[in-house]
């Protein structure tokens, strides 16, 4: 396969996941801002932080909720806004039409201009509907890829991009919210914490799933365990790393060649193997999170070097 094709598939996977994750973050912000006693701007700032847009975009720091929503949803200056992600994913797809199935292309192409020229006020007023729409688009794209794409190296590159992005988004959410998971807040207790914890789960669409696994006992240990170590939850760090390793192995088997990215992936999986969440807290959750973010970035760079893109 052309290296350029692999590159476009990889980034298409990343952008679609980023659009999806950003929509979930905005949903979390929207919900938290409705909780009594919350400091509105703090919540929205942590949303911006988790979405990687904490720095002023376009020279203006975020003053209001509308600023954050604008930057994350419809801004063209923010390369990671949902709109930018959808436009870039479509551009990736358009550049490699032949590597896409018709179903995938239609999922990318349908309504891609929906967010163009939308006034900030309109976007805020219609936020829940718009976010629902974004999640539907990304789900349609994933579905189309799953049912129609050949399971060859192209599929692996698409999934690798998506998984790297999912791991990154979960890590950045933990990075922005880790303070609510620290043991001392456990002592404070009360409704406010409950909302904080559930909001973290909501942002990863894990609320119900968590409920099933941990029987509704919301506590920081359980939540961190779920998002980092749970091998069955598809956005957990552990799951993402294992699956990344599997797809990299598939490509290596197919091409008959391994490289540094394979070693890094193996290392990342080994790092979480048999680890208990208590150990992570003892060793320092914050350090673990920032190290993992760096490792994830390094892996992405190694993959593109290995496959010449």
């Amino acid at each position: 396969m052309l290296s350029r094709t692999a590159q476009n598939l990889f980034w298409m996977g990343r952008y679609m996941e980023r659009a999806d994750a950003t929509a979930r973050l905005l949903e979390m912000g929207h919900r938290m801002s409705m909780v009594p006693g919350s400091s509105d701007m703090d919540e929205w700032r942590s949303v911006a932080l988790a979405a990687g847009a904490q720095d002023p975009i376009n020279g203006k720091p975020h003053q209001t909720a509308a600023d954050v929503i604008h930057d994350l949803l419809i801004s063209v200056d923010n390369r990671s806004s949902i709109r930018s992600c959808l436009v870039q994913a479509r551009a990736n797809g358009r550049a490699i039409r032949t590597a896409l199935t018709q179903d995938m292309w239609e999922a990318l192409n349908e309504g891609w201009r929906q967010l163009d020229d939308m006034a900030p006020e309109t976007s805020r007023r219609n936020l829940p509907t718009l976010l629902e729409w974004v999640k539907n688009r990304t789900a349609a794209f994933r579905g189309a890829s799953e049912i129609s794409l050949l399971r060859n190296d192209g599929y692996c590159f698409l999934r690798l991009g998506g998984l790297i992005e999912q791991a990154d988004m979960t890590l950045r959410l933990l990075d922005a919210k880790y303070y609510v998971l620290l043991p001392e807040t456990d002592v404070v207790g009360g409704g406010r914490d409950y909302h904080q914890w559930t909001s973290v789960l909501r942002a990863t669409s894990a609320l119900r799933a968590y409920h099933h696994v941990y029987k509704g006992d919301y506590n920081p240990w359980g939540i961190a365990d779920f998002l980092i170590l749970n091998a069955t939850f598809p956005r957990s760090i552990s799951y993402c790393h294992r699956t990344i390793q599997r797809f990299l192995d598939d490509i290596a088997d197919h091409y008959g060649e391994r490289g540094p990215c394979h070693d890094t992936a193996t290392e990342m999986v080994a790092r979480l193997d048999g680890v208990h969440i208590e150990q992570l807290f003892q060793a320092g959750l914050y350090d673990f999170i920032s190290d993992s973010i760096t490792a994830n970035h390094r892996l992405a760079a190694e993959i593109s070097r290995q496959y010449h893109f």
Binding site: M1, L2, S3, R4, T5, A6, I96, R97, T98, D153, F157, I251, Y255, E257, Y307, H308, F309
Partner: peptide
């Protein structure tokens, strides 16, 4: 394959495309 010019290069008197392999 649908190639763009940057996907192709010349070496040893032949044309090659850059692929993942």
């Amino acid at each position: 394959e649908l190639v763009e010019p940057q996907d192709l290069f010349i070496e040893g008197g032949l044309v090659w495309m850059r692929t993942t392999r």
